[in-house]
Amino acid sequence: MEMNNKLTPPEKLDLIRDKDRPTVRDYIPMIFDEFIELHGDRYYGDDRAIIGGLASIKGIAVTVIAEVKGRNLNENKESNFAMPHPEGYRKALRLAKQAEKFHRPVVCFIDTPGAFCGVEAENRGQGEAIARNIMEFMTLKTPVISIVLGEGGSGGALALGVCDKLAVLENSIYSVISPRGFASILWKDGGREREAASIMKITADDMLELGVAEEIISEPFGGAQNDPKETAKNISEFLLKTLKEKMAIDIDVLLNERYTKFRKIGEFEEL
């Protein structure tokens, strides 16, 4: 793969926050032949930070679940800056279970600073909602493919990130907490965000090295916003190839591989 724009982690941070960086709303029409949005978690409401629905890519029916960044302030108000509430994760799980029932693969797009931290989110069990998704996705009897489009922040990202293959866009980041949060917790100084980004190991290359992601999807020179069509084409190619690969595997084998993929992450020694 041609890495034509090697940026430092803080530069990547700037790039993925660029207001022109394409969001999943831009990509969906370019990647899928059709898309029918389905709403609601059937318990509480319809979280606009996560959208989901039926789609097809070159004739393969899939369920799409995606965290939604806004392209302007109004869109961001609607989607809560892509910070989901529990009902968003519960909608995602409902649609994933539906996909399992009808043997459709699930495609998740991750793009969030993290799960929303607020009173209502706590009242409705933010922790439980994320935990449930993680556990249920681990045994979901259909292929799951996840792609980090820009920002993969903490448990809010992992709730859509338990999958058979994780791909990350070349300039995207994936982290246990936002660099600002990291700096403010460990150094009591959120202002040291860029320094945090530099040492946290959050880049696409880091994800491959640490066994968190399996593939990097390349972006055009200057980043995805310089050529959204080209980026969408790269995502489509990855998806088609991976769907075919994972759909051909016996489901028990697939589930075993999924469990093992996460099972082996950890760096310890036994004295």
């Binding site: 935990a131 993680i134 556990m135 681990m138 045994t139 903490s154 448990g155 992992l158 990130g161 338990v162 994936y174 982290s175 246990v176 907490i177 990291f182 917790i185 460990l186 946290m200 190991k201 959050i202 880091d206 994800m207 640490l210 968190v212 469990y259 996460f262 099972r263 992450i265 950890g266 760096e267």
Partner: peptide, 18 residues
């Protein structure tokens, strides 16, 4: 999660829940 271990600590959530 243990911040000092970065993304590796996040993945422990997947491991334990699995």
């Amino acid at each position: 999660a243990r911040m000092q271990e970065g993304i590796v600590s996040l993945m422990q959530m997947a491991k334990t829940s699995g």
